[in-house]
Nucleic acid binder design. Structure first.
Length: 429
RNA sequence: GGGGAGAUACCAGAGCGGUCAAAUGGGGCAGACUGUAAAUCUGCUGCUUCGGCUACGUAGGUUCGAAUCCUACUCUCCCCA
């Protein structure tokens, strides 16, 4: 059977800005046969975040091009800790946390890939499966023997830590990850490892291991990395006020998730639409020129936010986020808030922080803001009120404002806002 | 083991007996302008019942008065062995 890829993966990744570097011969390989390729995920948290989306998208493209994707969850590597890009030694996770994280991540990965394709179904593998019974002596004889310390020391992930210091555990990390590649190559005919550019060092340790330990002419591993996603202003991609932007709706609500993409700057949006959506090149080019003609419409941001939110949270997640956005950023007046049914109201404010109070009649705005956890203290509440930044039910109020029962929406809710983006919901018991 | 330097707010970092809730920069938040953008400008960035109160690694001490001086302790970094 002759293999014809659906498209040239490397070319596709290049115009999308998802290509950083590869080892020579990778493109030829991808054009001539169905390739099994993998990406590893680090189980440091119980949810993936948008920083993990690029590696996931690499797998998605791999599969769309007709190849077979493997997602590796790092049960074993997670126990060691990847030193890449870290300034200091990492704390080790206990087994229980690790397993919980693995299970959660596995579920999330499954929503992006096709597990029921004819010949190139995705698979999830866990490197703990092949490491759990791998003895230390066996490992250092079988694996350690093939890689010199000099070689390992030359890696940036190690070099950058020579001043600060690093434990033997983290030093060994690249061997563990390298062995993963070797194992998958040998057992599952996986020839390609992909990842972020920070993973280059770890990946080539794997290809090196395949070259030295593998037998025959075919003993060659290929690799491909995506660039680090940057923001135009130089700050770190993937963080919002609350820290990471998670894929888990419990940790980052669909509304917040949608808003994250909505707030992308123009320059970044033009790059992100290529990276985070699967739209075609011509479609995107049109979109970008349309956006440049009428930038205030924010068409790019809206499409980007819609696409990614739907991908991660489904249609319903997107609908909720959009409804909330229209109310809060549209001509959001007190009336439009009050016109919502209780059910809609609650779903709109699903991701907004809340607090309950006993009584509202006669309570001053300062007390309410300070005591409910909306603002850190009454002093801060006073300051914010002087800055004219506090709104009650979408209407600005001053320091003398006192609540009455008439302010309750549906007889039990009050919406507090500081500025445009910080919202808080008060529930009367 | 010997010698040296240091620990100040979210971070970096000044202050070295009263005028210090503590310079300056960064970050963060808000306001103006806008397009929920960027840039720019402005304000704020310990708590408070607005009387005060608690804070400059920890615990004591000197003093009318301590972030500042003394003692001990803890921790960090550097140099030598």
């Amino acid at each position: 059977m002759v293999f014809i890829p659906k498209y040239n993966l490397i070319e596709e990744l290049k115009w999308r800005g998802l290509f950083h570097q590869d080892v020579p011969g990778t493109e030829e390989l991808l054009m001539k046969e169905m390739v099994s390729g993998y990406v590893g995920f680090d189980p440091t948290a119980d949810s993936l975040h948008i920083g993990n989306m690029v590696p996931i998208i690499l797998l998605v493209h791999l599969q769309r091009a007709g190849h077979k994707p493997y997602a590796l969850v790092g049960g074993a590597t997670g126990m060691v800790g990847d030193p890449s890009g870290k300034k200091s030694e990492r704390t080790l996770l206990n087994l229980e946390t690790l397993n919980h994280n693995l299970a959660c991540q596995k579920r999330q990965l499954e929503q992006f890939l096709d597990f029921n394709a004819d010949s190139n179904s995705a698979e999830v593998v866990n490197n703990y499966d092949w490491f759990q019974n791998f003895g230390f002596l066996e490992f250092i004889r079988d694996v350690g023997k093939h890689i010199s310390v000099n070689y390992m020391m030359a890696k940036d992930s190690v070099k950058n830590r020579l001043e600060e210091g690093m434990s033997f555990t983290e030093f060994s990390y690249q061997l563990v990850q390298g062995y993963d590649f070797y194992y998958l190559w040998k057992e599952k005919n996986v020839k390609l490892q992909m990842g972020g550019s920070d993973q280059w060092g770890n990946i080539v340790t794997g290809t090196e291991l395949i070259r030295r330990k593998g037998e025959g002419e075919d003993a060659k591993g290929y690799s491909l990395t995506a660039p680090l996603i940057t923001k135009a202003d130089g700050s770190k991609f993937g963080k919002s006020e609350g820290g990471n932007v998670w894929l888990d709706a419990e940790k980052t609500s669909p509304y917040e998730f949608y808003q994250f993409w909505m707030n992308t700057t123009d320059a970044d949006a033009e790059r992100y639409i290529k990276i985070f959506t699967l739209h075609s090149k011509s479609w995107i080019d049109n979109m970008i020129s349309a956006h440049q003609e009428a930038p205030h419409q924010r068409a790019l941001q809206k499409e980007l936010a819609k696409y990614v939110t739907t991908w991660v949270h489904g249609e319903s997640g997107y609908e909720t986020a959009l409804a909330a956005t229209e109310i809060l950023f549209g001509n959001g007046t007190s009336e439009s808030l009050r016109s919502l049914s209780e059910k809609d109201f609650l779903s709109v404010f699903d991701g907004v922080k809340k607090s309950e109070v006993e009584e509202i009649e006669g309570v001053s705005i300062v007390d309410l803001c300070g005591d409910t956890g909306f603002l850190a203290s009454k002093s801060e509440a006073r300051r914010a009120l002087k800055e004219n930044s506090i709104s009650v039910n979408s209407e600005k109020v001053n320091e003398d404002f006192t609540f009455s029962n008439a302010d309750l929406i549906n007889g039990k809710y009050i919406l507090l806002q500081r500025g445009k983006k910080n919202k808080f919901l008060i529930l009367k018991k």
